[in-house]
Simulated scan of single mutants.
Amino acid sequence: MKTPFKTLILAVSLVSLLACNANSKNRTQDLAISEIVIKTTSKNKNPEIKVALLLDTSNSMDGLIDQAKAQLWKIVNELSYAKCEDKSPNLKIALYEYGNDNLNVEEGYLRQVIAFSDDLDEISKSLFSLTTNGGNEYCGKVIETALNQLEWGSSNNDLKLIFIAGNEPYSQGNVSYKEASKLAHNNDVTVNTIFCGDYNQGISTKWKDGADLTHGNYMAINHNEATIHIASPYDDEILELNEKLNQTYIAYGSAGRAKMEMQAEQDSNARSYNKANAVSRTVSKSSRLYKNSSWDLVDAEKEKDFSYEALDNKQLPKELQGKSESEIKSFIEKKSKERNKLQDQIVALNIKRRNFVTQQSNDATNNLETAMIKALKTQAEKKNYKWE
Rank of each mutant, 00 (worst) to 15 (best):
T365S: 05
K291S: 03
I230C: 06
K314H: 15
A115R: 00
E78K: 05
V347H: 14
S171F: 08
Q359M: 12
V113N: 02
M260L: 11
N90M: 08
V283P: 03
S16W: 11
A52Q: 00
Q360I: 08
I38M: 12
V76Q: 14
G173P: 02
D66I: 01
V12D: 13
Y385C: 13
K335D: 03
E327S: 15
E319A: 05
V37I: 06
N104W: 09
F163A: 14
K323N: 06
L161M: 09
S286D: 12
K160W: 06
T28Q: 08
D299F: 06
S294N: 11
T365N: 01
Y81M: 11
A11L: 07
K74Q: 09
P233H: 08
T193A: 14
S181A: 15
G197P: 02
K334V: 03
T132C: 12
I36L: 10
D299Q: 03
S24C: 02
D235R: 05
Q360Y: 01
N23G: 09
K335H: 14
L159T: 15
A264N: 06
Q67I: 02
E327G: 06
Y138M: 10
S176Y: 13
L159E: 07
G153A: 06
A364E: 13
Q263F: 07
I221N: 06
D305Q: 04
S155Y: 09
E137P: 00
Q172P: 02
S34A: 07
L79R: 10
L14A: 15
T214K: 07
S155N: 12
V142I: 15
Y81D: 11
K334C: 00
L53H: 04
K43Y: 03
I221Y: 10
V279A: 06
W207N: 01
E381F: 05
N350G: 04
T227W: 08
L31D: 11
I164N: 06
S294D: 15
K92A: 12
N167F: 01
A278D: 02
N104Q: 14
R257S: 09
N187P: 12
K43F: 06
N350Q: 05
L130N: 02
Q71E: 12
Q71W: 04
D236I: 13
G63C: 03
A115F: 08
A220N: 10
L297N: 04
S326W: 00
K386T: 14
L8S: 09
N26C: 03
N362V: 12
L316Y: 05
K208L: 04
N242E: 07
N192T: 05
V113M: 11
Q315G: 15
R257F: 09
D62K: 08
A211Q: 04
A375W: 01
S171E: 13
A70S: 10
K337G: 00
S284I: 10
I238K: 03
L18H: 11
R27E: 14
A258M: 11
K377N: 06
K302S: 09
D296W: 08
L91S: 02
Q67M: 02
S80K: 12
